[in-house]
Nucleic acid binder design. Sequence first.
RNA 1: GGCGCGGUAGCUCAGCUGGUCAGAGCGUAUGAUUCAUAAUCAUAAGGUCGGGAGUUCAAGCCUCCCCCGCGCUACCA
Length: 716
Amino acid sequence: MSGLTKQRYLVTAALPYANGPLHVGHLAGAYLPADVYVRYQRLMRREVVFVCGSDEHGAAITMRAHKEGVSPREIVDKYHVLIRDTFQKIGIAFDIYHRTSEPLHHQTSQEIFRKLLENGHFEERETEQYYDESAKQFLADRYIQGTCPICGNPDAYGDQCEKCGTSLSPDQLLHPRSALSGNPPVKRPTTHWYFKLNEHEAWLREWINTGRIDGKQVHDPTTWKAHVIGQCNAWLDQGLQPRAMTRDLDWGVDVPPDIPNAQGKKLYVWLDAPIGYISATKQWAADNRDNWERFWKSEDTALIHFIGKDNIVFHCLIFPAILRAHGEFILPVNVPANQFLNLEGAKFSTSRNWAVWVHEYLQELPGREDDLRYNLIKNMPEQRDSEFTWKGLQETTNTELVGNLGGFIQRVFVLVHKNYGGVVPRSVPDQTFRSGWNAETITTTDQELYQLAKKLEEMGAHIEHFQFRDALRVLMEISSAGNALLQFNEPWKVAQEHPEQVKAVLFTALQYVVALSVAMRPFLPFSAERLRAQLNLSPFADDGELVAILNDLLEGNAILWPDHRIKPPEHLFSRLPDEVIERQIQKLHASTPREAAKPLNDSRPPLKDTVPFEIFAQLDLRTATIIAAEKIEKADKLLRLTVDLGFETRTIVAGIAQHYSPEEIIGRQVLVVANLAPRKMRGIESQGMVLMAEDAQGRLCFVRPDENWPNGFAVR
RNA sequence: GGCGCGGUAGCUCAGCUGGUCAGAGCGUAUGAUUCAUAAUCAUAAGGUCGGGAGUUCAAGCCUCCCCCGCGCUACCA
């Protein structure tokens, strides 16, 4: 199927944004699958370079710096180091972890911008943008605050209201003000470069869906994930639009200053972050006296982007379009995006601190890097969102790592030491015993080693198809077969009667252990290295160890020879006790406001400006009773209410459908604003407004007289 | 309401272009075993593959309708 054999691999993992730490969802989404894939390819002696780095530009970082009174540089330096070290400690084996603030990256991005400009891929557009006259700069969306037109939150941002979650554009904000000075901004014309993405629609569609470009097969779409292709087509079907590639920002890569109108302009994320993959490769090549162009400009290279599902359109449409518009670069052969990992039934949330931070895990559960990696790979969100739970981590650690895998290795070590003083026994070539793959089958060492090789190949095939959970399952099948081999032959029982058979069984079991030490390396690199040392073998060079043992096994050769001495038994894994798990679960819940708990102060809206009594007096509030209510078609939140004011009835449209069903509110007494200007919603004129109270969770309840009261009377 | 993705054994999840696809791991039950960190091995449990209708010789896998969850989006004066 994948007859597109490549000579070398360039693997990228999404650049983490340097304004916060990593959580385990990040690992499961992009970094662990990439790491497993890369480590496997190295063990198969394939040429592979694995690049990543910090994404250090953008408005969110300057916002944060401004808020904390530090420079953007201080923010990104802090998180770059934290993230880089976290990756290193959890065993993500990048060849280089670069950063987009490096001059090399700025140059690279500028060169690509210039090339696209020369090739006519941009159009300049003049638009009106908000400008802060006192700060003398244009304002990014995030830098404009104002009143949300939807919920009235006075501190909504120009891109989104964090109170009601609505995404906005700066023009929608009422009473806009600059987040820098607090002054109202003014509109000023500004010019930006728009990438003509629309011109790339046709070939992108062909390329994504058939793998062909100009009739040439460059990837195999059957190996792409369905949700990746699905999301791309959803975008393509809506039609691609030109997209601004520059912004008025003060932290980022400058538009090359010799280009007219470049002052104050920075390259937007599209022309910044993904180019970080290229600049990282350049730096790696410089450090290793290699040529980076072999990896980016040669059809012999397989480029693979590991990302989360939030990045699909970016990596499958926009970045490829940029690469092709430039003209010299290859395109990815696959973008194996994962879905999202949830935590204990809910989404990860930085603001609610609902997360497992990797650097804290490393500190609080030292020596358990592989326990976490194993659980995250086993539950990797390959096809759908999946879930991490602390109980789950305990279970996989105690049953699968300690019980099955660790148990098998320990048994072999103990038996070899008890029977042969820690020296690999020499067995008679054709000695028979029961197969670990089937109790009924009588087998020989040669046959068992052939089976073992087949299993290793099966595991590898899964990895090459980005099926990491399946690959891990096959790894454990090998371990289970090893356990069964011992179980069926009971070497502890028959050592006296059948010494030759026991030699053959333990010799075979030792080969399994060696195979496992190599096969587990991509998933459990730390344990693999420790096991390697216990086997008294040289440390991993991560250079062809797997293909070497595969070749040996397929030719019927042993991979651990008689007379080799192994070290004394030592447990490879340890049980995760209840107390540790309980503590983490408590910590998780303690840091998160409970559902019914007191609302946080900052979730209460701030007081509005004082108004004179005359303004209040202009409102005409009345008592009323709901006499009819019905759901409005094609609107999830709207109810059409008929209210009795005593002297007349009115129709009022209220956005309460998600809090009350029509039936349960009929007959209920309420307060209404009776002199509000009528307004049409969903084609129905609303003649007033029902007063509701809202709590921190956004729940609504009616405000009404505390005893039954005649309708139509004033509230004051 | 629209669009996208999901709803498969108690739990977590596999099931490619329709025909051994009704599965795996964990949990549970029973038995075996004691070399091994109460670890291991074997066997079983019988889930109307969200519900209904349809296409087909044949449907978790295709079509239509409905219900539920998640994401984006519209409506929340």
